[in-house]
Amino acid sequence: MDMSGEYRIAAPIQTVWDAIQNPDILRGAIPGCEELEKTSDTDMTAKVSLKIGPVKAKFSGDVTLKDMVAPNALKIEGEGKGGIAGFAKGGADVQLAEDGDETILTYQAEAQVGGKIAQLGSRLIQSTAAKLADKFFANLKGELEEA
């Protein structure tokens, strides 16, 4: 299950780069995010509420930033447990490119689910995950452009 997309963000590359690592901005951008705390420069813990098909669950897990090449590239990885609903994990490779005062963000994301969500929601995972990934980057753009 792979997803990708591209956004033009009306903010300089350094602003975008900083924002991606800012827990306050991430909290607002991750769909369904209820809590997000930074535990180190690259590690965060999060609680996210998601609905996939007939299964609605609250996931608690970790978000990690990896392979950072400031200010051009990084990888965001997340992994969460949803109790009896199963688990979800995923990641996104993010590239930032400067275009005048603006920044072009591209991403390739992948997601994997297991347990009840996979069993009952498998038909909907692809579309739901693609929508969630897109919503995350759209929210990020929104937060940055508002600010």
Partner: peptide, 14 residues
């Protein structure tokens, strides 16, 4: 099953 061993046809919906 998907390649990771998750059962995808796990209800009468699938």
């Amino acid at each position: 099953y998907d390649d990771d061993g998750q059962l995808l046809s796990g209800s009468y919906m699938d």
